[in-house]
Amino acid sequence: MASLEAVRSKSASRTRWLLISPAVLVVIIGAIAPLLVIVTYSFLTPGPTGGVNYTLSFDAWTRVLFDRDVFDDTLTLSGTNLEILLRSLLLSLATTVLCLLVGFPTAYFIATRNPLNREVWLLLVTVPFWTNLLIRTFAIQDLIRNEGIINTLLIKTGFISEPIQMLFTNFAICLGLVYVYLPLMILPVYASLERQDRSLLEAASDLYARPFNVLREIIVPLAKPGIIAGSILVFIPAIGTYVTPILLGGGRNLMIGNYIEFQFGQGRDWPFGSALSLALMAIVMVALLVYIRHGDSHGHEHG
């Protein structure tokens, strides 16, 4: 009996492995293998016209944190890298916060419509996704440039006499990022709000909670999983963003995504680009862990 059972469980486990093997294969091919390539590259030296030379070097990693001074060869903490990284972090954090500030009320609005209208509103939220990102970004450019729609309107109505320089500023980058990633905040927040039991809100109101307190004590805490998911969905692509800083920021203030792209293009320094992108990954991962753990300790345990 026992041996029969052992055989059976062995074949069962084999079947199980067979069944999950496509998934494992996808993970290996899609995630692990490219990552390994990047890790390898980061420990090599740059080839003469892009690519890599197969000689071991820690130079790329050293340069992530330190600058070997161009002029006297001393190592100092890399101001350039840190500044670019800091800007990327701040811009993507600002984007996340703004997305939340705009997205939460929007999601709440949709979640409180009647079910038939909700679908229409949700559809409208996703409409921008039907258009190419570049086209949308160019549209924003046209809105905010000096001879653009907003400045023209403001001048014609006499609010201002000189156009306001909005294009090619950090404001423009932030605006573009918020516009592009807003749906990624609205949808998960909506999902968590839509699931909320209306009777909980009535119960809170019944127990002397004014509308603002209902929001603060019940709606927001219960929407936390959605808020966390939305923030992650916005923050990660925002910090790696590449098109927006060029088109709306005018390329004067680069974000880490452009910096990495440059290393693989004109910079011809693939090892450094690899090291930078791995460093970015690590930072995002640590930030997420801290964020999620923090969110957990204060949040509730139910979905």
Binding site: D67, R87, N253, F262, G267, R268, D269
Partner: peptide
Amino acid sequence: PKITQLYSRIWQDVQK
């Protein structure tokens, strides 16, 4: 490549 790296550094300092 060494010179390109040097120029990249300067150019990045400008773009940061």
